[in-house]
Design a protein around this nucleic acid. Sequence first.
DNA 1: TTGTACGCGTTATCAC
DNA 2: GTGATAACGCGTACAA
Lengths: 332, 332
Amino acid sequence: MGNKRLTVREIAKLADVSVATVSRVSRGTGQVSQETRERVLRIIEEYGYRPSQMGRSLAEQRHGMVAIVFPGLAGPYFSELTQGFESQAMEAGTGVHILVTHHRDDADDSVLDMASRVDGIAIHGDTVRTETLRRIAAEVPVVVLAGRPMDGVPAVRADNSTIGELTRHLLVDHGYRRLAFVGSPDGSPDVTDRWEAFQAAHKQARVPAPRNPVRLGLQQSDGVRAAGELLDGRRPPRAVVCANDETALGMLIGALGRGLSVPGDVAITGFDDVPMASLVQPRLTTVRQPIRELGATTARLLISGLGNRGAVMDAVLATEPVFRESCGCPRT
Amino acid sequence: MGNKRLTVREIAKLADVSVATVSRVSRGTGQVSQETRERVLRIIEEYGYRPSQMGRSLAEQRHGMVAIVFPGLAGPYFSELTQGFESQAMEAGTGVHILVTHHRDDADDSVLDMASRVDGIAIHGDTVRTETLRRIAAEVPVVVLAGRPMDGVPAVRADNSTIGELTRHLLVDHGYRRLAFVGSPDGSPDVTDRWEAFQAAHKQARVPAPRNPVRLGLQQSDGVRAAGELLDGRRPPRAVVCANDETALGMLIGALGRGLSVPGDVAITGFDDVPMASLVQPRLTTVRQPIRELGATTARLLISGLGNRGAVMDAVLATEPVFRESCGCPRT
DNA sequence: TTGTACGCGTTATCAC
DNA sequence: GTGATAACGCGTACAA
């Protein structure tokens, strides 16, 4: 194992042909006689020759590879997003490089390094600073995923305003007062949008909104922690609007674990409509977001945009509220 | 944006020096006069020059990049694993390429393609077929992560036998009969080991083990489904040993959602000890696995082993049972 | 200290 | 149908 790989030249010598012919055979391009082709193919097979990617990309001036940058990858959200992205990349014969920043300090360097290894980069939310985004965009095509377009960098995102409908539903249809919002607006553009839609809905319903959101992460464990913060206080909220389903699920688990009734004592809503949302008891009222399609659209935009610039600059995908029982609606 | 990037030659011309000097400056290697260095540095800065990775790796005969291959990335497990892996890779100045197969048919091709883009590959469980693993190992150094060593390919894994202790605890200490196991042994080596340890513990306690495991995936939603299969039947199990925490959590949610008492009606155990395990009510009895260390060890072995072969062949990391309340133990 | 020239592995353009 | 040979961008002996 670990044998040094053979090069075109060596294969050419072994098959007694020129490197050009080996290349033609291995790429299946150009004209090669039946006999020669078979001979070369046999040698290639025998020695397990595979053209070096670095040699190839140097010659072709492309990597056949795009990258997608995430802040982290816990939860089903990123998994779905990746699958949507990869499905389209694959269709275009392009590889996908996943880069996770984990909110590290040197994340920007990693992303800049990526820029010289791929033909295009999709960057999620605000994983990198604006300044870095600009520098990267100067080197390779970039698409912002789940964030706002900027300086000629196109974006693909979901319509977050629908969480306003959910909020209105809680305030008006159910008549709840004292709502809480769980999520850090400074953490991601998506959460910023959702927090703003939450506030806007309050304004429209002429109900005072809470001054601050419960600033926590987007994982289930954060939802459980939020339950601790909100439900153990002396004036617990009547309903909790969570920035995503994971925190809503954590919140639900925390509430039930305290012996509270959901939605009787506290109503809970989420965002995403992940599989678990319809599997828990009570089922989760949420906003359905086409996560997979979000990834797919991003990949298409990125890959097609590699050549022609100035197409779509801001693709906003539609979302829809899904009313189940965790908000207080009867089971249908 | 999208400006074609400058090459060493162009920078050299602009700074009025040779390409060698530019290279020396940008790499910080060799001897360059203070004055020249500053001049070149200024030009590099001004034009935002960054050496092309493909040119560099072609010249250096290395990529400065290793890959880690996963079957999927839902749940906190892969997130932790990745962070451990990346922390070590980073320390060695190596980039990390994450490849997710999603159990696709053409996954093996993707992995083979990776082989010519990186200096080494860590492959999780059995994401690829044995035959493919062999071919890859013939091209680049490979380490199996959470699987068995094979044909000179080293492995890093956790001690799965501890789930036997947990099973014994349920059978002997608590005296439970009719246990069920949730997880697909054919899905991954880890689950195979755990299923076998589960069976072995039964044998040792002279209690008949169930003939078959509940063959489902490793996500929370699978746990909820397992709850449906097991708890709605006419002879529900007294205790359920789940292959990981995610399914155990799903199981717990499913049980509680049915109005059952845990551990009163049914005891539940997991594997991993993820953060949620100690946050739910009742807290989850499980096996603690050093996930992050698993990733870190793999990276170290892979990167150090790039040069010297024949070091560690099978690193088995210790695990420990964590008894909480979901198995029936009193809260301590 | 600096510059020239070659090699890395591949593809593509010409001649033949 | 096939073979030389020139790119591609960089690092680095070797020469100056």
